[in-house]
């Protein structure tokens, strides 16, 4: 059974179109379907929280692209955690300063929070906050928590956090308001590596627990 995703294509200048797909799991499904369809004339695809910005190749009219984008049929029931493709494993020490708060907010024990976080395969939905940062979705819905009421001025690189339906890893020290549950030593961003980002849109991610 597949539920039809409602698509809307909005103007975005003479070189791009903004596709509204509703929510982040639909973004992941739409980008999967768009890549599979190999639509000609597409130069770049920039997924975000509820939309996908599609940039046309120079000389490729956006009018023609518009109908092609409306014709893409994403299948959100193709589970975000399906086993296709390689899974990137990220070892995490679950020692974050907000682990107890997350347990309280979710009504789970700290042990359950860790088990829930490591218990499913996440997908990278989109990036954009900083080079190498990815918003991951598809995890255990019991982990949905609000951001912290006040943001920290400095979150260390490698901090693993939760916010809303997302989990993510800070690629470098930056301000941030996510609930921090752990730390990883896996470098998220390394310009001497190809590709430099560990988390790329579409990638499948599994967190594993390492002892402290």
């Amino acid at each position: 059974m597949t539920e039809q995703v409602r698509l809307d294509v909005l103007p975005y200048g003479d070189r791009a179109l903004l596709v509204e797909v509703g929510d982040t799991p639909n973004v992941v499904a739409y980008v999967d379907a768009l890549r599979a369809a190999e639509v000609p004339g597409v130069a770049d695809v920039i997924p975000a929280a509820e939309t996908v910005l599609v940039v046309a190749e120079p000389g490729s009219p956006v009018g023609a692209l518009r109908s092609a984008l409306l014709g893409i049929r994403p299948d959100p029931s193709a589970d975000a955690s399906s086993d296709e493709g390689d899974v990137v494993e990220i070892p995490v020490r679950y020692d974050g300063p907000d682990l107890a708060d997350v347990a309280e907010l979710t009504g789970l024990s700290e042990r359950d929070v860790v088990d829930a976080h490591t218990g499913s395969t996440w997908r990278v939905a989109f990036g954009g906050f900083a080079p190498g940062f990815g918003y991951l979705v598809g995890g255990d819905p019991r982990l949905h928590v609000a951001r912290r009421t006040s943001a920290r001025t400095a979150v260390p690189a490698g901090a693993v956090g939760l916010a809303g339906e997302y989990t993510g890893v800070y690629p470098r020290e930056s301000p941030g308001g996510w609930q921090l549950i752990g730390t990883t030593e896996a470098p998220m961003w390394d310009l001497d590596r190809d590709p430099p980002a560990l988390l790329r849109p579409g990638a499948r991610i599994r967190f594993t627990e390492v002892g402290s």
């Binding site: 975005y12 200048g13 070189r15 903004l18 997924p47 975000a48 939309t51 996908v52 910005l53 954009g128």
Partner: peptide, 10 residues
């Protein structure tokens, strides 16, 4: 507004 992709000229 939730984050959206941006492009030159926006």
């Amino acid at each position: 507004l939730p984050s959206e992709g941006a492009y030159r000229g926006a």
